[in-house]
């Protein structure tokens, strides 16, 4: 402990410049989807005299906290509408993008072997396709022997950004899903069982013969779960890889209110269809301007220095043009009549 303090003191002394001599402590709360990458950025940003405390309590809670100003910034996977932003005096900007991938447990079917379309996936989760050897699945998978086994769909029991991204995709590709269920952090599932967290979904799929679930990509990779190929908008079957995620991200249109680009079901032959950005919320009328500036400094640092870390954790960093757009958006926040960014 003592050594740690000394080390910390040394660090502070080392990095100290007259203007930034003190370490800024910032507290954020919200989305669980980007949690790992924020944690890593927080570790790195200590060198820039910013100490981050980020708690992944869920997007909804993150929005509540920043509305009530109990934290310095909120984080959410589901973007707020322009009206919500105005009402809450909030500025919204994206940080990174991530992918959601379906996982399966079908005896005799290898990882990335099964091919699915969005419509079939939606009908599985709607309870309309109940057997793995359903003609509609067999039709997509010539050469794969599919067992006569009941499909056991697994979803996130806890309301989560991952569910929001996944159901947004299902709603985008299936008219009937859009009209009967819709997209949300939790929805009215027609069939299957829920499990808590990525670990819960993966565990339940692993336990259940015929199980299918969806998890964040990093989780599937780290645990070598059996993922599937999905047919994208261009009609191509793609595997979940960093290349297909990046291909999807490269087509995004960020020039929308709240910078809430939708990357779900993007054009492009090589695009993975379930990719989504995650967002930060900042008060436009900050009560503690120093904290708000520190949050900006933190994400400025992260944009500049954090891309490699993000890739390492299988997130997709923002293109530089978008980063610069975010920086100029920060300038809209005014403190004592002065733009809060760039910080003097």
């Amino acid at each position: 402990m003592i050594t740690r303090r000394i080390a910390l003191a040394g660090l502070v002394a080392l990095a100290a410049t007259p203007a930034l001599a003190q370490t800024a402590q910032i507290t954020g709360a919200g989305a669980s989807f980007p949690n790992p990458v924020y944690q890593r950025w927080g570790e790195g940003a200590k060198a820039a005299n910013i100490q981050l405390n980020y708690q992944s309590v869920g997007s909804g809670a993150g929005v509540n906290q920043i509305r009530n100003r109990t934290v310095d910034f909120g984080a959410t996977d589901a973007p707020l509408t322009q009206q919500q932003l105005t009402e809450g005096n909030l500025l919204q900007f994206p940080t990174v993008m991530g992918a959601v991938v379906p996982i399966v447990n079908i005896p005799g079917v290898a990882a990335d072997q099964l091919r699915l379309t969005g419509e079939v996936l939606a009908d599985i989760y709607a309870g309309k396709i109940t057997k793995w050897n359903d003609p509609r699945i067999v039709e997509l998978n010539s050469g794969v022997t599919l067992p006569n086994l009941a499909i056991a769909p697994v979803y996130r029991a806890d309301a989560s950004g991952t569910s929001f991204v996944f159901t947004s995709y299902l709603a985008a590709v299936s008219e009937s899903w859009k009209s009967s269920v819709g997209a949300g952090t939790s929805v009215k599932w027609a069939t299957g069982a829920g499990a808590r967290g990525n670990e819960g979904v993966a565990g339940t799929v692993r336990n259940t013969r015929g199980g299918i679930g969806y998890v964040e990509n990093a989780y599937a990779t780290q645990n070598r779960l059996a993922t599937v190929q999905l047919r994208n908008k261009a009609g191509q079957y793609v595997k979940p890889t960093m290349e297909t995620f990046a291909a999807a991200a490269s087509n995004a249109n960020w020039n929308v209110p709240g910078m809430a680009a939708s990357i779900i079901d993007q054009q492009g032959a090589n695009s993975w269809p379930i990719v989504s950005p995650t967002f930060i919320l900042l008060p436009t009328n900050p009560t503690d301007a120093a904290k708000t500036r520190a949050v900006m400094r933190f994400f400025d640092w992260a944009y500049t220095n954090g891309a490699a870390t993000a890739r390492e954790l299988e997130y997709i960093p923002l293109p530089e043009t978008v980063q610069n757009a975010v920086r100029s958006a920060w300038g809209q926040i005014r403190v004592d009549g002065q733009p809060a960014w760039p910080a003097r």
Binding site: S59, A157, A159, G192, A193, G194, R196
Partner: peptide, 27 residues
């Protein structure tokens, strides 16, 4: 298993008040 439907089966997923509050409160 957090399912908001009543299944006759005891093995089916379900919900309790406390669990739905905990699972949904964050969002």
């Amino acid at each position: 298993g957090n399912a908001n439907r009543i299944t006759p089966s005891l093995f089916g997923p379900g919900n309790t008040i406390a669990s739905i509050v905990a699972l949904e409160f964050g969002e």
